[in-house]
Design a binder for these strands. Structure first.
Lengths: 222, 222
DNA sequence: AATCAATGTTAAGGGAATGTTAAATCCTTA
DNA sequence: TAAGGATTTAACATTCCCTTAACATTGATT
């Protein structure tokens, strides 16, 4: 389930939102100021970050601007909590990289429907078969990958191998798992075959995406 | 059924329109100001947005301009509610990206017929069958294609194959998908048949439109 | 540090998938 | 039913991906 980070200096609001979101099954993370929020965001890479606009120290706009500078945090959605009659556009919320805003006082039902809408939008963008992983996008429908805005055509096995590894970033796939998924259970090929394909992929997108765990398998990181 | 978002600061008008549209089976969404309207629009991606021109805070024109900047919201129709004697063109409604305007006071019958007309126009424009893909146009009604201003008559299978591939440029269609769509699920033909048709099409419009993804299928690009 | 198994790297051969052409069959229309 | 194009099949050519093999390097274990 989606990870949501909430940043607000008022403990009551944090708790109110936490309660309502956890009830719906979201994984909730909390921070009580901008700096803390940035640190937590780097740690958990949430799907959605809810920022209070008015906070002591670093305010929401500033925090948002900072967040968007961090490579891992260009995909997450960012929503602001604002007072009802603030002119959000004027304040520069969208320029700072925000996706939406939610008016205070918070009504749980409104909050939830808003968040569901946001996340649906986000995942419908990515579940079409387009996976965005930092500077690397994998489009299963078009059978291409895009690396730093450059389209690359991978042959079938290479594409499927990369698609498998990247489907669960961080997870180590054993050689057997890879063989079963990419080649199919009954096919018998020498195990060096996998290495060669990994080599080919690394040649095209760089070494750092696929990491070798000696004796165990391979994992994708970005 | 079509989704319609109504943005107006007067609750009475919202209710009036909602009542009439829901009666006709439309899915109706409401917002009471420009910012809220933008947020809702992003959430539901309506087919038609009805904006009141005069609203406190962000007015209709401004909201419309903002809406059209959002990638997901370039297709929806936008109609304005205006006072009877305002010169809509002068105000800049069309420049802001509006498709139509409706005069107040609202007469339900007029409103409904106007909306039906708009939606019919929208859907007939996109389903009309003329696909323009760079130098290649595909006219499903006339069953012809136009390549660099030259009309070409393709035999049925060739036409349908090209129409299928070009319906989602970039997407790779597997041989099975192609067989199911162009030939029909129960027909059994040798798989080389597809290649031959691809060859014929390439002969007529050039090689670069249809790309082979070995072991996967074919895709259309332009 | 030495060893050895696991993985990196490269190049080449084989083979399956597709390209290509022509002929055979099917279908429509006059 | 004959003619003509449309569709499919068949047969051969070609391409490009996959695999293998052979050697190099790494890194864990002793």
């Amino acid at each position: 389930m989606a990870k949501i980070l909430i940043v607000d200096d008022e403990p009551d609001i944090l708790e109110l939102i936490r309660y309502n979101l956890e009830k719906e099954g979201y994984k909730v993370f909390l921070a009580s100021n901008g700096l803390d929020g940035i640190a937590k965001a780097k740690e958990v890479i949430p799907d959605l970050i809810i920022l209070d606009l008015m906070m002591p120290g670093m305010d929401g706009i500033e925090a948002c601007t900072e967040l968007r500078k961090i490579p891992d945090l260009q995909n997450p959605l960012i929503a602001f909590l604002t007072a009802r009659n603030e002119d959000f556009a004027q304040i520069g919320g969208f320029e700072a990289g925000a996706d939406d805003f939610i008016n205070k006082p918070i009504k749980p039902k409104v909050l939830l429907s808003r968040i569901k809408g946001l996340l649906r939008r986000k995942f419908s963008e990515t579940e079409n078969g387009l996976l965005v992983l930092g500077e690397l996008s994998i489009d299963k429908e078009k059978y291409i990958i895009i690396h730093r805005n450059v389209e690359i055509n991978l042959p079938r096995k290479e594409f499927e191998l990369l698609a498998l590894l990247s489907s669960k970033p961080g997870k180590v796939f054993s050689r057997d798992e890879i063989l079963n998924n990419v080649w199919g259970g009954d096919v018998v090929v020498g195990d060096r075959t996998i290495d060669v394909h990994v080599r080919k992929i690394r040649e095209k997108i760089g070494d750092h995406y696929i990491k070798t765990i000696k004796g165990v398998g391979y994992k994708f990181e970005f």
